[in-house]
């Protein structure tokens, strides 16, 4: 690839370097997002341990299916508690927006919900085709070699939407609504990802917690167990005697 770079002329080499830069930028963005979410999920997954620890310790959960059902029992509550206010705020603001649009903005719902997107600026990357076309009138111009759709620079030309009017109040109302909606969505995303992490760990741990490993069983454990079985237990005999007595008394009562 390096040999190819040396063979290319100056402009084409720049284009290839721009492509490389774009590729690395995309990798960095995706990799960064992945690492952040992974760390967050690892941290959140451990929260499942905090509420399941006592259940296992007190032997309230005894098998794999019961473990899963206990996790879902807790998750129903945790998920509801972590996301209820985001949903409530979102519903409240949507209601206010609809009422406001119906009463003040002449029931123009489509405009209210699309006005915010006018704030997003236009990004335009100048392509090889456009550059060649714009500079073709120059004498001794050597056109850039490469596919027409390829951008010549990483940095785009940024321009505001021509339909944007800062004097209209609908723009400000729509912006406030969308800022609240985006904040709520981020909160909901957070609670959902945490839920996914905890459920995943629950499925993994439901297998691991009740797994018995014979290779870790030492002969000492076995001898202790056999001693426990063979040793006489006076309490049991007494209880057995009591039970017999109770049985006899029950029989006597029945006879009477």
């Amino acid at each position: 690839m390096l040999f190819l770079l040396f063979r290319l002329d100056e402009r084409s080499r720049k284009v290839v370097l721009v492509l490389y830069a774009l590729f690395i930028l995309v990798l960095l963005i995706f990799g960064g997002i992945y690492v952040v979410i992974e760390k967050f999920m690892k941290k959140q997954a451990l929260k499942m341990d905090t509420y399941m620890y006592d259940l296992i310790k007190f032997k309230l959960v005894r098998n794999k299916n019961h473990f899963k059902s206990a996790v879902f029992y807790h998750e129903q509550r945790i998920l509801f508690n972590t996301s209820k206010w985001f949903f409530r705020i979102l519903i409240l603001f949507t209601g206010i927006a609809c009422i406001l649009t119906a009463l003040v903005f002449d029931k123009n719902f489509s405009r209210f919900f699309s006005e915010f997107f006018k704030l997003i600026p236009n990004f335009h990357w100048t392509t090889i085709k456009e550059t060649n076309e714009s500079l073709s009138h120059l004498e001794n111009y050597q056109p850039i070699i490469g596919p027409g759709w390829l951008p010549v620079s990483v940095i785009p030309n940024v321009s505001l939407n021509p339909n944007l009017n800062f004097d209209e109040p609908i723009l400000y109302c729509s912006t406030v609504y969308y800022i609240v909606a985006i904040a709520c969505f981020v909160g909901l995303t957070r609670s959902t990802i945490a839920f996914i992490a905890r459920v995943h760990r629950a499925f993994k741990m439901s297998n691991d917690v009740f797994q018995k490993d014979l290779s870790t069983l030492s002969p000492d454990d076995l001898s202790e167990f056999s001693n426990m079985i063979n040793s006489p237990l006076p309490n049991i005999n007494n209880n057995a005697g009591n039970n017999n007595n109770n049985d006899n008394s029950n029989q006597d009562n029945k006879d009477n």
């Binding site: 992945y34 690492v35 959902t192 990802i193």
Partner: peptide, 25 residues
């Protein structure tokens, strides 16, 4: 970079998976 590649390749599946859990939420 391996994580980044994984994220790029599987991102549509992650998004679908996330949407599913959002519906559950």
């Amino acid at each position: 970079f391996l994580k980044a590649f994984k994220a790029i390749i599987f991102s549509p599946f992650y998004i679908i998976y996330f949407a599913l859990y959002l519906v559950i939420n």
